[in-house]
Structure formats: C-alpha cells, structure tokens
Amino acid sequence: MNGFVIWLMILLGLAEVMVKRRTVAVGLVTAQALILVGFAISEANSIDRLIIAGALALRAFGLAFLYIYLIRRTHEVTPVIASIGPLSRAGIAISLSLALIWLFGSTTLVTPDTSKAVLVLVVFGVVTVITRRATLLQVLGIVLIENGLALSALVIPGGSSLFIEIGVTLDLILMSLVASAFHFRIFSEFGTANAGALRSLRD
C-alpha cells in the first residue's frame, strides 16, 4: 500500500474531526470507504477479495444514503455546535494519536505505516465521539473507527476472511440502522439531535 493512500486516509480522517457540517462529514467517511474499495480491487488476487470490495462499496453507498436521508429528515433549527473548536479538536486528535503511536512502539501490523494509520484513524474516531455533540457525528466517529479497522483487515497477511468482512459490514449497517432509529426518536423527543441534551442520567 503506498504512502499517498495512507496519507489521504489520515487527512480525510482529520477533516472528519474538524468538519462542521454533517453532510460534509458523511461525504468524508464515504470517500474513505471508497478509497478502501479501490485498494481492495487494486490488490485483488482472488474472487474473495472482489466480493469484499463489493461489500465495502455497498456499505459505503448504503450508509451514505442512509445518513443523507437522516440529515434531510432531521433539520436542525440551530446547528449543534461542538464543545471544542475545530483547531483544538485537530490538536487533541493529533497529539493523542502521536502519543498512542509512541506507546505502541514496535507493535505493528504488516507494515509500520499502515499500522500507524490504523491507530490514527481509531484515535480520530474516538476523539470525534468525545468532542462532537450531534448524534449523527458520533455515529460517524464509529464509522471512522471501522474504516480504520477495515484498512487493517485488508492488509493482514494470510488473507482476511470473507465471512468476517461481510459480517463486519452487516454489523456496521445494523448498528447504523439502530442508531438512526434512535436519532429519529431523539430528534422528535428532544427537538434536536444533540447528545449534549442527553444528560439527565447521572448521579
């Protein structure tokens, strides 16, 4: 896997952390997924690989449509603003991922670059969940984590399991569907799809 693709993935992830509009965020994770599709096809050596690419593409488009549909159905009167500004978010994300890479030391997947990229994407996803309040963006944070993991699954030696890959795809779709059901209900109950409003359960 060449460095350009990896950096592209990381930059898209960083943009995801910083972005303001939900639509753009959906576009970014979809773009990441499409890069993965491209990567899977370019290195395809068996029919399994092609099926995996198909599954990834299906999930990329399927989720994109689902999210866009959600955004259109739940129009926020006032946009849900993150608690921390975009630059600080990027700062936190980058410093956390650098720290984690350092802590991991020599523990790597096949190539050090991919391994670091996976770590960075996972951290970016977690930071998105931590810092964003819009419910959809929190789901996108998890999609970001899964994109990173899909990347790692593609480069694992010994071949990734078709069964598992399709399973992960289905799982992500299932999780997104459940999340959208919640998103709708939260929007209709609270009048805004803002996870910051969900603070009545505490001790």
Binding site: T107, T108, L109, V110, S115, V118, L119, V122, G125, V126, V129, G141, I142, I145, E146, G148, L149, S152, A153, V155, I156, P157, G158, G159, S160, S161, L162, F163, I164, E165, V168, M175
Partner: peptide
C-alpha cells in the same frame, strides 16, 4: 460500539501476528 471497535483493533493486531492463518483460522 466504540469499545468493541477498540477490541477489534486488538484482534486485527493479533491476527497479523498469527501469520499463517489470517482472520479465517
């Protein structure tokens, strides 16, 4: 979901260290 994402990170790291088998085995 986030926690399990992290667990999956660990699992794929684990899989990469069991070279012959891959995820399937």
């Amino acid at each position: 979901s986030m926690g399990l994402g992290v667990a999956l990170l660990g699992i794929s790291l684990l899989a990469s260290k069991i070279p012959v088998l891959g995820l399937n085995g």
